[in-house]
């Protein structure tokens, strides 16, 4: 049986030579967390199942910095490495794969050009193409959206792009289905309402998406303690849980979290 995945996410600011890992709250307010290769090696030793590197600066002149980060990390870290942020073309993806990455994650670029998912999946396989969805609850109901009941009332889930700066009017559930059809291998689903808040994953959002697609959903945004991860695995079909802050600032180690999950009946790799 496949194990549930624990995935640390490194938001990388690439304005300095080796890059630096930072973390925001609800997509704003930035706090320093460490150097990408050092954190990666620590997480690898702690039995992370995969590591995601997001280029939050996502500008073209910084692309070489990300390539160098991945080259360095892939020499000592032998688990799948996923890279996202600013990948707009098959050529961008190729550069990332050639530096040692196993998967790319697409967000804005996939919404602007859905065919890119297909191109990457056809050239490198579905497993190499993760579609990231940044979703926010929208309580103003409109026609054609998938409406969900939540304790705070009925809402739908809206996709945003450009790191949460722009809203698209697109329904996250419908988009996840389309991304699956186009060949995405994973959906990395981030709740913008929860990101960086430590209040737990958005279970309604995670359920809404994971109940409607067959490919794995990685729940993201809001993880504040191991119990939140247990909760998202017990109450939704999420195959993976992504966290940043709780690991970066040494509040919990990945190993401790996995031991806790195993003790509570979740199938994880130890």
């Amino acid at each position: 049986m496949l194990a549930k995945r624990i995935i640390p996410c490194l938001d990388c600011d690439l304005a300095v030579p080796e890059g630096r890992v930072v973390k925001g709250v609800e997509f704003k307010q930035i706090r320093y967390a460490g150097i990408p290769w050092k954190l990666s090696e620590k997480y690898y030793k702690d039995k992370a199942d995969e590591i995601i590197f997001l280029d939050i600066t996502a500008s073209h002149d910084r692309r070489d910095t990300m390539t160098n980060v991945i080259k360095k990390v892939s020499k000592n870290v032998f688990i799948p490495l996923t890279v996202g942020g600013g990948i707009h073309s098959l050529k961008d993806a190729k550069t990332v794969f050639h530096s040692g990455a196993d998967k790319v994650t697409l967000n804005t670029a996939a919404i602007k050009n859905p065919q890119l998912i297909k191109e990457i999946a056809e050239n490198y396989g579905s497993q190499a193409c993760v579609v990231a969805i940044d979703a926010k609850r929208n309580y103003s109901l409109s026609r054609g959206k998938e409406i969900y009941e939540t304790p705070k009332g009925e809402c739908w889930f809206e996709c945003s792009i450009y790191g949460g700066r722009e809203f698209t009017g697109m329904d996250a559930v419908a988009w996840a289905k389309e991304a699956q059809e186009l060949g995405a291998g994973d959906i990395m689903l981030t709740s913008m309402d929860r990101d960086g808040t430590y209040n737990g994953f958005d279970l309604e959002l995670t359920n809404a998406v994971s109940e409607n697609i067959q490919i794995p959903v990685i729940a993201s945004g809001g993880c504040g303690n191991p119990k939140h991860i247990l909760e998202v695995f017990k109450e939704t079909k999420a195959q993976g849980a992504l966290a940043a802050s709780i690991f970066h600032y040494n509040e919990y180690s990945i190993l401790d979290v996995k031991k806790y999950l195993k003790k509570n009946g979740i199938h994880v790799r130890l």
Binding site: M1, L2, R5, G125, S126, P216
Partner: peptide, 10 residues
């Protein structure tokens, strides 16, 4: 089952 099988298995 999930196809492709993608992830950690025993």
């Amino acid at each position: 089952v999930l196809v492709p099988q993608m992830g950690w298995n025993e």
